[in-house]
Design a protein around this nucleic acid. Structure first.
Lengths: 245, 245
DNA sequence: ATCAGTTATTTTGCATTCATTTTTTGTCCT
DNA sequence: AGGACAAAAAATGAATGCAAAATAACTGAT
C-alpha cells in the first residue's frame, strides 16, 4: 500500500463513544466533523493521497457517508478531489497563503468594525485580560502560550461582532491555514513579536474608543504584517539550522 | 405528492447535452452546478421541501450523486438538511440577511482595499464606463439595467483585488442573498437611488486616488446603506399596494 | 538493465438494495 | 364528527454491488 496516512491501526476516535462532547445524529455529520479535525490537525501530509478504502476502515463506516464528507471538505477548500483519482490534502501555494491571509485580514477588519457597534465594557476588559496574559507569555518566551492567547483575542473580537455568519466564515478560513499559521507565527523572530505586541495595544486602544474605521485599518494592517512574517518564514524556513545536512 | 417544486415534467436541462457551456466530468459536479443554479434562481420557494426522489427524476440520475450535491449546498448555506426529514431551501430570517449583508460589506470593503494596490488605469476607466452606463439606466428608470450595471461594477472591484479566494467567497455569499438582493434593490425608492449614485461616485473618486482605507470605509458604508434599504423593503414590502385585499 | 506494451489489481463513480424513520392513510372509539 | 391509535406507504440514511477508469505488476524486446 502506498497511502500517506500514518496507519495507527486504530480508529481516529473510539468507534462507539464519539470523540468529543459534540453530538451528531447522522453518520455523515459525525464523519465530517472527525475528518475535518483529522485533516486540519495535520495528520495527513500536504498533497498526500487519501484513499477512501483506508479511511473507511479507519472510521469504521462504509464509503457512502465518507464520500459525502469528502465532497463537503473539498467545498470548504481543505482537500481537493481529482476526477477518478481520489482526494488529496490541498497543497497551498505561496500565493494561496497570501490570499488566505488577506481574506482573514478582511474578515477580522470587518469583525473589529462591527465589534465597535456592540461590544460591552466587560468584553473589552476580558480582552485586556487576555492581552496581559499574552504579554506574560511574551516575557517568558512562551511561544505556545502566546499563540493561544493571541488566538483567543482574535476570536473574542470576532465574537464581539455578533455575527454568526462571519464567525463561521472566519472559522472556515482559519482552518485552512491553521498549520501554517502556527508554525509560521514568527518563530524566534523577536522583533516581530514586539511589533505584534504594539499592534495589539493599538487594537485595544481603538476598541476602547469604539473607533470603527480606525480599528478596521489597524486590524487589517496587523494581519498584513502577520502575513508577511508567515511568508518570510516559509521562504527561509529555518534560520538556525545548518545549511547542509 | 406534496412537493413544493413546480413540476414541469422536463429535466432542468436536457439530460444529454449539458445546459450551459460549462463542462464537468463527474455527474456529481454537474449535478452540483445545475442544482445550485436551480436553487439560487429561486425555482423552489423558500423553506420548500426538496424531495430527493423527484429531483433524481428531474435530473435523470440516481440518489447518490444528488445527495452528495445536497450536502455541499448545505455546507454553502443555500439549503438546510434536517435529519431524517430531507432538504429545505434555507429560509433567511431578517437577522440572517443583516449578517449576510454585513459580511458582503466586509468582503467588498476588503476588495476595495486590495484593489487600490493593483488596479490599473484601464480597469478604472472600465469601471467609469460602467458607472456612466448605470447613470443612463438611472435616468431612464431602468431598474433591471441599473441592477446589472451595479452588479458588474462591484464584480469589477472584486476582480481588481486579484484574489481568487476572495472572489470565490464573495460569489458564495452573493448567491445566498441573490433573490433578496434583486427584489430589494430599493424598488421605487428614488431617494435611495440618487444616494447610491452619489456613493458610487465617491467610490470611483477614492479608487482613482488609490486611497485604500478611505475606499474601504466608503464601500462598507455603501453596503450598509444597501442593507438598510433591503431590510426596510422586506419589512414594508409594497408601499403602493392596497392595505387589504 | 531499461523501456514499451500488455495484463492484473486496485480504486473510483454511480446505481441499487436494505434498514429506519417519518409521514400518511385508515380504523376504531368516544 | 372529531380525535387517538395503528397499519401502510413513502422518504431518508447507509451499505453493498457493479462498471469504468486508473494504478500497479508483469512480460518481452532492445
Amino acid at each position: 500500500m502506498k497511502s500517506t496516512i500514518p496507519d495507527t491501526g486504530v480508529p481516529i476516535t473510539p468507534p462507539t463513544g464519539n470523540g468529543g462532547d459534540r453530538q451528531e445524529a447522522s453518520l455523515h455529520g459525525e464523519t465530517l466533523l472527525r475528518l475535518r479535525d483529522y485533516v486540519v490537525e495535520g495528520n495527513i501530509p500536504e498533497g498526500g493521497r487519501v484513499p477512501e478504502r483506508q479511511l473507511c476502515e479507519m472510521l469504521g463506516i462504509s464509503r457512502t457517508p465518507l464520500r459525502e464528507a469528502l465532497k463537503v471538505l473539498a467545498a470548504e477548500g481543505l482537500i481537493e478531489l481529482l476526477p477518478n483519482r481520489g482526494a488529496r490534502v490541498r497543497q497551498l501555494s505561496q500565493r494561496d497563503l497570501e490570499e488566505l491571509f488577506d481574506v482573514m485580514a478582511g474578515l477580522e477588519s470587518l469583525a473589529g468594525r462591527l465589534a465597535c457597534e456592540a461590544i460591552t465594557d466587560a468584553e473589552i476588559t476580558a480582552i485586556e485580560q487576555l492581552h496581559y496574559e499574552m504579554y506574560g507569555h511574551y516575557l517568558h518566551r512562551d511561544m505556545h502560550g502566546y499563540f493561544q492567547a493571541n488566538q483567543r483575542i482574535h476570536e473574542s473580537i470576532v465574537a464581539a461582532a455578533r455575527n454568526e455568519t462571519l464567525k463561521t466564515a472566519y472559522a472556515n478560513f482559519a482552518g485552512r491555514i491553521r498549520r501554517v499559521r502556527y508554525s509560521a507565527n514568527f518563530a524566534r523572530k523577536r522583533q516581530r513579536w514586539a511589533e505584534a505586541m504594539r499592534e495589539h495595544e493599538a487594537v485595544l486602544d481603538a476598541l476602547r474608543r469604539r473607533a470603527a474605521s480606525e480599528l478596521s485599518d489597524i486590524l487589517f494592517q496587523h494581519l498584513r504584517n502577520k502575513r508577511t512574517a508567515a511568508i518570510e518564514h516559509l521562504t527561509e524556513p529555518r534560520e538556525d539550522a545548518p545549511a547542509s545536512p
